[in-house]
Design a protein around this nucleic acid. Structure first.
Lengths: 213, 213
DNA sequence: CATTGTGAACTCATTCACAGCG
DNA sequence: CGCTGTGAATGAGTTCACAATG
């Protein structure tokens, strides 16, 4: 009974974690799993697991638990992993290549349909899969031709906004931004930021805090 | 008046954002900044800025705002960016190299003191700065010799736990884990996870949600 | 008088506790 | 009987609103 209800973002993050643990459980031959076990594997509270799932339906059997295969299928549907998503990468340095070659992404249906750069040293370089690194100028047309729905920015901070604008022009309205800067986009565009510097800052802060204690 | 008080993790994340915006403001020649302006730059609420700073002291001047240079210095101290931190990377694929060469990290005082791998093709490869990729077997001794306090895991999921255990043996108790798996560590060890797959899952979920609307 | 600093109000998320059910 | 599903209680984090003040 998927009620129209505000679902915490953290719930989505956890669904992704549940999904991965369930894959491992299935691989290990488990048929059923309790919220307690799944919670233990994810290092969280069992009630949290049940509440998270409760936002989307009733997937369990009282007194027994959850069917591993069935729950996998349900979460797959919720996260819309039951289809492929094409993404394009702008900035083919080491980070761009790391994303391109990331096995788990491809395995979940996230396919890199095109890779872009503005450096003439890189444009034309062959990629696994028979394609080549394209000129960033081709971004807009490639988005349309290849049905790219997600843009990944792995450029230096100085180019991030320009690239974001290009993605927007091509009506890509989901961006994963690795550049250590904030990009400005209209409300219609989703942005997730992954900023290594910020995470390192957090570690440094906590480390010092721990040392002081 | 740094009261002993629970400080939200989100506050630390934002301090890191403030820091970066302040650097840009300083570069652009600004002397003072109001919580309103800083909040606008970070796309958040002005009261949030004041509350975040309020956890650590009184840095502003009523009726005027905050001195850009002074606030930079204060946040630098809070985040303990007023010193260098040595980190070691395990797994020198594209992602490992991306971290190694990340300009902003070095600029903030996060120095890669050593890089490790277990592949004989990579061990011994020269790195910028005169060092080489080391055998992962040397991890423990290198940690001690090079004063490494932060471990970065950029291996495949299958090796992540093994590497984490090696870091722990060497008494590194802060880990940045990029492997798409959960690592188990004792309470004394801080872990931050960056999981590309999870973030992509979130984007896919939100995209589909938006399409449905 | 503009802007900070902060208690109080509010909103959002997690955990508890137990009814409901196989 | 055991475990799910969920309303109610708690806890955490954000925003409001205004007194304090340079």
């Amino acid at each position: 009974m998927t009620k129209t209800q505000k679902i915490p973002k953290a719930t989505i993050t956890r669904l992704s974690m549940y999904y991965r643990q369930l894959e491992l459980l299935e691989f290990d031959g488990y048929r059923m799993v309790s919220s307690e076990k799944l919670a233990w594997l994810c290092q969280i509270n069992p009630a949290q697991v049940r509440k998270d799932l409760g936002y989307f339906g009733e997937f369990g059997v009282r007194g027994v638990g959850y069917d591993v295969i069935d729950l996998l299928a349900q979460i797959k549907k919720i996260l819309s992993l039951n289809r492929d998503w094409n993404f394009g990468i702008a900035g083919m340095g080491n980070l761009g290549c790391a994303i391109l070659l990331h096995r788990n992404l491809a395995l979940r249906g996230f396919k890199c349909a095109a890779a872009f750069d503005n450096s003439h040293d890189r444009i034309g370089m062959p990629l696994p899969g028979g394609t080549k690194i394209r000129d960033i100028k081709e971004l807009k047309t490639a988005i349309r031709d290849l049905n790219i729905e997600i843009g990944v920015i792995t450029t230096p901070a100085s180019s991030a906004q320009k690239v974001a604008d290009l993605f927007l022009e091509g009506h890509v309205n989901a961006i994963l931004n690795f550049a250590p800067t904030r990009i400005n986009v209209p409300d219609c565009c989703l942005v997730e930021n992954i900023d290594f510097t910020v995470i390192m800052d957090i570690l440094a802060y906590k480390l010092r805090e721990k040392m002081a204690a």
